[in-house]
């Protein structure tokens, strides 16, 4: 007997490869000099700028804390950001703005093995478009990998001297719990005449009263 003419099953999506922790020795692969040896001619690190890069030089720094308030000293952090004009160095950004040839927008670093402090030397990004004609406040995307973290944790860093832009930012203003929004906003200070933005990240609430950082399912 003939089979009824129903469509063949649709080709299904393959499941994404499951994540696993980066483990305590993530530096071997992603920051071998920090692991203690020199192997590649060209290393990818935490300095995103050269002399030619356009924009205001800034330092981003902070620490990552676990639920006991102890710094996560084996964390590996990467950042991704637009240039000073708010343009990403990638063909998927179709804005009519120039890419800065001396700014890739990506950096990575490990927390210091003694103090847990992370540092990036970069520029302050310009505002980038959001969806539906809205504008996003200047921000830096961050992702955290470490022993004990099964799936990389995504978050964003915003700037505390961008009060109006932050108030209008689609993502920040979509966080229903207003008390949590501050966990994404870095504080500006000056050191040796250079601007430094500090953002501590808390994987859970800490005993000193620190609030858990907002993490994103991007």
């Amino acid at each position: 007997m003939n089979q009824p003419l129903t469509p063949l099953p649709m080709v299904q999506r393959r499941p994404e490869t499951p994540s696993q922790t980066g483990g305590p020795y993530v530096h071997i692969g992603l920051a071998p000099q920090q692991a203690g040896f020199d192997i590649f001619e060209n290393n990818f690190g935490n300095v995103l700028v050269t002399d030619d890069t356009r924009g205001e030089r800034i330092t981003l720094e902070g620490r990552v804390f676990d639920g006991s308030g102890t710094p996560v000293r084996d964390v590996l952090i990467e950042i991704w950001q637009a240039n000073a004009d708010g343009k990403y160095a990638h063909p998927g950004d179709n804005q009519d703005k120039d890419v800065d040839p001396s700014f890739r927008g990506w950096g990575r670093t490990g927390g210091d093995f003694d103090t847990g402090v992370y540092t990036f030397e970069t520029i302050k990004p310009g505002a980038v478009p959001g969806n539906n004609g809205r504008t996003q406040a200047p921000h830096v995307l961050m992702v955290l990998f470490a022993r004990g973290i099964n799936v990389g944790l995504h978050t964003r860093l915003y700037f505390d001297d961008e009060t109006d832009a932050n108030a209008a930012d689609p993502l920040l203003s979509s966080i229903e719990w207003e008390v949590r929004r501050d966990t994404l906003i870095a504080k500006r200070s000056e050191r040796d005449g250079k601007p430094v933005y500090t953002l501590d990240i808390r994987l859970q609430d800490t005993p000193d009263g620190g609030r858990e950082t907002v993490f994103l399912d991007i």
Binding site: H90, G148, E212
Partner: peptide
């Protein structure tokens, strides 16, 4: 069962924003 995850896992749910150009692009 993987003990280090206990103090290194967020207690709040993740928040899901819509993708923007920020999430749709990546370093080359």
């Amino acid at each position: 069962g993987y003990r280090t995850s206990v103090l290194r896992s967020p207690r709040n749910a993740l928040i899901s924003p819509r993708n923007t150009v920020s999430e749709k692009t990546a370093p080359l």
